[in-house]
Amino acid sequence: MVVDVGAVVTLREHVATTVSARNGRLVAEQVQTTDGRSGTDLGLTSVLGGTVPSAVWVFADGSPAGTTVGETISVFNPGDTDTTVQVQVQLDDQRTNGTVEPFEVTVASHRFAVVDLYADPRVPRSVGHWVIVRTLDGAPVIVERTLSGAKGSGLSGSSHTMGVPVVATRWLVGSLVTGDVKAATLSVANPSATDTATFTIRSITGTGVVDTPGAAGISLAPGERRSVDVGALLAASPGSSFEIVSDVALSVGQWLQFGTPVDFATPQAFPVSGTQSLLRSAIMPQAGAGLEVDPSLAPEDTVVIPDDAVTTSVLPVTTLTTG
């Protein structure tokens, strides 16, 4: 069944959707197209709905450093009470680059809020980053991230990605590339507040499984992220996939940039069953830089999962073009 949300909701720029089944189970996916208006290129993106709201979400990859790509975080609150959400931008090498004051926004029950990370200058474009989203009272929410590049900017396109509410010690990344790969990176983030991780990225090609050059036995301190360039490998062996293994549960993201046509994508990485766990807490702002953490920023360490989560699919915020 296909529902044209844009045809039904004609007077709203954004909309969030909950799809529920009276019995049985279902899969819900959101498909968005851009038509070239408002400075955008023609394009199409799709993202699956979230099956389980969570109090903590991670995006291990962010808009690339040194670009004009926009980045927004959309938070949908499916609960019956209002909640306050903290959007925490983790800069790479915080001891050198410093920290970013978290964004805080109140999200009313059954409503959503959108946070533009570049609405003010607190997030530097010259430094890479990743993002942690948490509710301060432990209420479960659904979180999506949108990356957008303006037409003619040199890096045009758009990508919608659900956040990751789990961490895992083993991840799989399928990179079935059919276009001209201009850049490709795998980002591995450690949201733990206490544990240092050691991880290895293995390349799965037509000739076997090998450790990715420069990506074996990498140490990752609490709150740190490492981005590994795999573009050369993908260019030489299109269709390569990757396995990330670690002694501490981590989060993984992927960035792909294409030259012909100009576009980019952030495909989802997948935790291997039996190695993942729900992310119930994460490193606090300032902690990764070795600074004293403001206790007022600490959320309650609680996660409540709805009993009917398996029959409910919550679609992140959709941007509608009208007119």
Rank of each mutant, 00 (worst) to 15 (best):
G6R: 08
G62D: 03
R280Q: 15
L117Q: 07
T178M: 13
V9K: 09
G259H: 03
L26G: 14
G206F: 02
K151N: 10
T275G: 09
V47Y: 03
A287C: 08
A193H: 09
V19Y: 09
R12C: 10
G43Y: 06
D137Q: 06
E300L: 15
S219L: 14
E104W: 02
A236I: 04
T302L: 15
E243Y: 06
L320K: 03
T321I: 11
P64G: 01
P102M: 07
G208P: 02
S153R: 03
R95P: 00
P271I: 02
L11Q: 15
L234V: 02
Q32R: 14
I201A: 07
V230P: 07
D180Q: 14
W171F: 11
P267K: 05
V164H: 13
V100T: 10
T311V: 13
S277Y: 02
M1Q: 10
S192P: 06
P64S: 05
G50E: 14
S251E: 10
V252L: 07
L256A: 05
T196Q: 14
A183P: 06
I305L: 11
S237E: 15
R202H: 14
Q268H: 12
I218D: 08
V167R: 13
T106E: 12
T45N: 14
R22W: 09
V15Y: 10
A216Y: 03
W255H: 09
S54I: 02
V105R: 09
G208R: 04
T72S: 12
A65Q: 03
K182H: 12
L320G: 04
F59I: 02
G24S: 10
L91E: 05
P78L: 03
L250V: 14
M284C: 11
T275A: 09
F103S: 07
Q254C: 06
V131S: 05
T33F: 11
A16N: 06
D301W: 13
S109M: 00
A269S: 14
G49A: 11
S175I: 05
M284A: 15
G290T: 04
P191M: 07
A60C: 02
E101Q: 12
Q86Y: 04
P285F: 06
R225E: 04
A55H: 06
P271T: 03
S63G: 07
Q32I: 11
S158T: 13
P140R: 02
T196D: 10
